[in-house]
């Protein structure tokens, strides 16, 4: 890995994680609570805080980079054409909204219903952000990135990391139905990821010389990493099942969930980090110029 890749990796992953957390929080926790007009458990505030911290990590990795906010403004000059401009716009909007919503939650924990619309909007912005982010990579000059597989993989990463975190977080407090739902995601997403791999690879094989070289990079130089990643995915699926069957409506038995949820979270992180690492490593510019 060239020493300039890891910031990008951290940035994309932490943003996708952040959006995933906020989105699933909104869907799985707030939505049922809002429906039932229940009171928001206090520690749920922490969830948005974690998402915010993740987004702020992104801030560190991007906007503060030149140490010069003027540069950030400059990068918004080409919204008409540049996906990078758009990414920065959505990134700023998303982070800004998340900051506000998190602040509101801490300040007015019980009035969550009155500003839930803002959280919904944050989610939407986040979803667009992940798409825009993927468009940055969706370039004809970079055949291995130049396809719908890029946004798919970004969204899958978003959902998987979000669900793993939320499951781990709401061991005691979440409703068992939402827990089951999260566990299903933890099982289903890696299954989709693994199933997509051969599809992606065979598509690459057909996508020209440089894309073919990407495949051969994956299958030769990076084969160990490739297998490691697969291993982590399969483990995540396994722990997902474990978690699924540990979830009972009977709250007394919930403690059992900690170990599988934690293991699923850890293997998920492993799988996504390697996956993203390979995403950058496999790239062979078109013509390999």
């Amino acid at each position: 890995m060239s020493n300039s890749d890891w910031p990008l990796m951290v940035f994309t992953l932490s943003m996708q994680f952040s959006v995933g957390v906020v989105l699933l929080y909104d869907l799985f926790l707030l939505f049922p609570i809002a429906l039932k007009k229940e009171k928001l458990p206090l520690r749920f505030q922490m969830i948005l805080l974690v998402a915010l911290v993740a987004a702020l990590t992104g801030v560190v990795f991007s906007l503060l980079h030149p140490g010069n906010p003027v540069n950030a403004m400059k990068t918004l000059s080409n919204l008409n054409n540049s996906w990078l401009s758009r990414e920065i716009l959505f990134f700023i909007s998303y982070s800004g909204m998340l900051l506000i919503v998190t602040g509101l939650q801490f300040r007015f924990p019980s009035a969550v219903r009155s500003y839930k619309w803002l959280l919904d909007l944050t989610c939407l912005t986040g979803l667009v952000l992940v798409y825009v982010m993927s468009r940055i990579y969706w370039l004809p000059s970079m055949p291995a990135w130049d396809s719908i597989f890029t946004p798919i993989s970004f969204y899958l990463a978003m959902f998987l990391s979000g669900s793993c975190f939320l499951l781990l977080f709401q061991l005691n407090s979440g409703s068992w139905t939402s827990q089951k739902g999260l566990a299903v995601l933890i099982i289903a997403i890696p299954v989709i990821q693994v199933a997509l791999l051969p599809v992606y690879m065979s598509w690459l094989e057909e996508a020209g010389d440089s894309a073919r070289q990407s495949v051969s990079l994956l299958l030769n130089q990076y084969l160990p990493a490739f297998y490691l990643r697969l291993g982590f995915e399969i483990l995540t699926i396994a722990f997902g099942f474990w978690a699924f069957f540990s979830i009972r409506s009977d709250t007394l038995k919930r403690r059992n969930l900690f170990i599988p949820a934690l293991l699923a979270f850890i293997t998920m992180v492993g799988a996504l980090v390697i996956d993203r690492f390979l995403f950058y490593q496999q790239i062979v510019p078109i013509g390999n110029l």
Binding site: N71, K74, T75, N78, S82, L84, L139
Partner: peptide
């Protein structure tokens, strides 16, 4: 198209140039 700052731009004569004052080195 990619350049977020419009530093990379096309002159009227079609020559593609970089405006160093706008470029942020991304």
């Amino acid at each position: 198209k990619a350049c977020p700052t419009t530093a990379m731009h096309s002159e009227l004569d079609g020559i593609i140039q970089i405006d160093p004052k706008k470029c942020v080195g991304c």
